[in-house]
Amino acid sequence: MIEMAPPADEPDHDVRPDLHLVADSDGALLCRIAERDLEAFEILYRRYARPVYGLALRRLNDRGRAEDATQEAFAAVWRSAATYAPARGGGARWLFTVARNTIVDHARRGGRTRLVPTAALPELAARDAGPEPAAEAGWLAFRVQAAVAELPERERLPLELAYWGGRSQSEIAQLLDLPLGTVKTRTRSALARLAVQLEQLR
């Protein structure tokens, strides 16, 4: 299928929050999960499976154990969603804390080892950092990855290619068969949208 280039008047900054983000905020989803709403659980899982898995990979350095820990983390979310108190903070922070605690417990228990090639790991890990900086780094990566996941695909693709695909804007334009100006507009729009989302995820 050929993707048509957008019109020249494509808005520079369409960063209005999507309606579903308002209706399905993390906190609202957790409240629904506390009421045993499977659909809410699936939505939250789709939104955060990658960030939680990324967190587990960083902490455990082992794919198999990271997979197990991710499953355990979401099981813990399901079990303890009723303890989430909206007045005490955002849903993302609560989920992060539950996931991190589960992963730490998993690390303490040890288990099978399946090494991950170093090149496949995200580059954030500040291996010499103490517990506090490491936790903050984990929280930052968690928020960023969750926010990136919520971007519209037309903005997410050029952004990911630019930041993690090592591609220049010209290469991205060629790859996506888009005018260079459109790639720049979409990348800038993605950054602006991320700024809004990261503020919401504090």
Binding site: G54, L57, E67, Q71, E72, F74, A75, W78, P122, V144
Partner: peptide
């Protein structure tokens, strides 16, 4: 923040769906 966070990992097949044990 994007540079520090690094790329999102690809989800393995085993994590394509929410955990059974949770429900």
């Amino acid at each position: 923040a994007l540079l520090r966070a690094g790329p999102r990992p690809e989800l393995p097949d085993s994590l394509a769906r929410p955990p059974e044990v949770a429900v």
